[in-house]
């Protein structure tokens, strides 16, 4: 099984925040092992913590204020709260996601990335979490009415159901609904049919997401609606 492309090596030492983080058990059951030094901070989605040293301090706060937190919860699929982890002495923290799949990290250097609802896992303090209007096309395509906008400086970790694979888009590319996880702001998203009316609806593909570059997109190798439909059929 080939490892998905990673922007950063599995082990890296961040220039600005000096936080050592390793993504393990990729791609099926990925989790992040973080070594916290005094002064380090990691912000993570509520319920992302799997284990931590006894001296790790966890502070829970609204995800960007009450209103923003509620909006992110309702429209962005994220938790109302985020947890901020720090430690007065060297400590270990393990973060993970509730479903099987890979975790990817991106080092933001003043640029922006859009995440699909529910994909955000953790970030360094220099990263700003915002909510952006994704439009009706995204909604009809099953990708949500809003998208999470991460920008600033620092690493951001996002999770996917299944493996994560990336693709550099120069022109137009087609992704089945529910497989798009993250994309750069230079990517334009539209919804279309996979083929003609007959083949789109009877070929099982239905609506698809048409992405137009330039830019990079991150996709997941499985999608939740496919899993739920499969489970329903076997209940």
């Amino acid at each position: 099984m080939s490892q998905p492309h990673s922007v950063l090596p599995p082990v890296c030492r961040n220039r600005r925040f000096i936080i050592e983080a390793t993504t393990r058990n990729r791609p099926s059951f990925a989790n992040i092992h973080i070594k916290l030094e005094p002064g380090d901070k990691i912000i993570a989605e509520a319920d992302a913590m799997a284990s931590m040293s006894a001296n790790v301090q966890m502070q829970t706060r609204w995800s960007g204020g009450v209103m923003k937190a509620v909006l992110k919860r309702v429209f962005g699929g994220e938790s109302l709260f985020v947890n901020e982890f720090s430690a007065p002495a060297p400590a270990e923290l393990v973060l993970t996601q509730p479903f099987p799949g890979d975790i990817e990290s991106i080092d933001l250097k003043g640029n922006t990335l859009f995440l699909q609802p529910g994909a955000f896992l953790a970030c360094e303090p220099g990263v700003t979490l915002g909510l952006g209007w994704a439009g009706m096309a995204s909604f009809v395509g099953g990708e949500g009415l809003f998208r999470l906008k991460v920008s600033g400086n620092g690493r951001v970790w996002f999770s996917a159901y299944g493996g994560i694979f990336t693709r550099e888009i120069t022109d137009e590319y087609i992704v089945d609904t529910g497989h798009l996880v993250a994309y750069e702001p230079t990517i334009n998203i539209r919804v279309g049919m996979a083929g003609g009316i007959f083949s789109s609806f009877f070929g099982g593909e239905g609506l698809v997401t048409k992405v137009r570059g330039p830019g990079r997109i991150y996709m997941q190798s499985r999608n939740f609606s496919g899993l739920t439909a499969w489970m329903n059929a076997h209940l």
Partner: peptide, 22 residues
């Protein structure tokens, strides 16, 4: 184009260089 639909892309004819601004 772009995610907002109003990002302006300027490309060389051989498409090797793209400058964009929103």
């Amino acid at each position: 184009g772009g995610a907002s639909g109003r990002m302006v892309f300027l490309r060389t004819m051989d498409r090797r260089l793209t400058i964009f601004c929103e």
